[in-house]
Design a binder for these strands. Structure first.
Lengths: 102, 102
DNA sequence: ATCATATTTCAACAAAAGTTGAAATAGGAG
DNA sequence: CTCCTATTTCAACTTTTGTTGAAATATGAT
């Protein structure tokens, strides 16, 4: 994973609403959740939620598929793994104080 | 680690100059590096470097100790581990696609 | 005390990110 | 086609972040 992509992913997660969205999507697993459901769950307006979903999707941490009228969002666990792997290995040289956390 | 602290740490790393600073400090290990050295290494002005060092220190990812005229900064690997641990466990429920990265 | 070095602080500004509410787009139902 | 629901887009605005250069603080050397 390239540095610029890592920075974008970190920035995407560095925001309360977006971190809540991601955590919710993790609990929903492969089923994912529709934008409207997410909006209700995190207590944010539709447009605000849409904005944050785009930010997470642009960073590659979630992806979207349309299902009839709804758009379903799902966590991209591989992208999360790539970002975390960068932090652990490239950034922290796999220092034991870091790797023991996983 | 609390959510607010995680967000602050993620935000601290989500910036090119600061990510470069952290990576440099990782390579310096327990010896750390003086603000001036860091400034040269990352190619940023003294005041800009100082600003970013404060941001990283406020987030708890590095700490500072004075040594004569210089101020030595070092990575706090435990803080890095705590942040990453939050992402892996609390956030991603230790999903295998995430844990295999460490 | 004076001077030089190392670093931070400050104020002014520029740029990026987040919020709001209204309007636009897309898809399905009658 | 018209209506309803789901979601995004847009423009205006507010807030937060980052940059700059000058001034302030702190330490050590002469």
């Amino acid at each position: 994973m390239e540095e610029q992509a890592v920075i974008q992913a970190l920035g995407a997660l560095a925001q309360a609403t977006r971190l809540r969205i991601l955590r919710y999507l993790v609990t929903m697993g492969p089923a994912g959740a529709a934008a409207g459901d997410i909006s209700k769950k995190v207590g944010a307006s539709a447009s605000r939620t849409s904005f944050h979903l785009s930010t997470l999707a642009d960073a590659g941490l979630i992806n979207a598929t349309r299902a009839s009228r709804s758009i379903i969002y799902r966590v991209d666990f591989d992208a999360m793994g790539a970002m975390i792997g960068y932090l652990v290995r490239d950034c922290c040289k796999s220092d034991p104080r870091v790797t023991t956390c996983c």
